[in-house]
């Protein structure tokens, strides 16, 4: 599995990634999935990661980029109509 940006999150990331791969290949790809079963593990991983992103000052940069994207997406949708 790929490494996390934050070494302290590697363990919980690995647990989430394993869950995701199993769900993705066994359910999602077969079109039989009714929900994202790995969400509880993702929440744990996210908790660890968001702390790491904040410590490194990446959280603000990410927020801005994602807001830009949303605006662009909205723009894109409008121009299609």
């Amino acid at each position: 599995m790929s490494a996390s940006l934050a070494p302290e999150c590697n363990e919980v990331k690995e647990r989430y990634d394993s869950c995701f791969l199993k769900w993705y290949s066994e359910k999602f790809l077969r079109g039989t999935s009714t929900s994202d079963e790995c969400d509880p593990l993702f929440k744990q991983y996210e908790k660890c990661l968001s702390r790491a992103l904040k410590d490194r000052g990446i959280d603000k940069m990410l927020k801005e980029a994602r807001e830009d994207n949303r605006e662009n997406d909205a723009e894109h949708m409008r121009s299609k109509r």
Partner: peptide
């Protein structure tokens, strides 16, 4: 040269069966 990969958001819509992922 890729040092790390993290999933920062993921959303599955059972209605459309679409999976959206944001990674860093």
């Amino acid at each position: 040269h890729v040092l790390s990969t993290d999933t920062i958001a993921r959303n599955y819509d059972p209605e459309t069966q679409r999976l959206t992922t944001i990674r860093l």
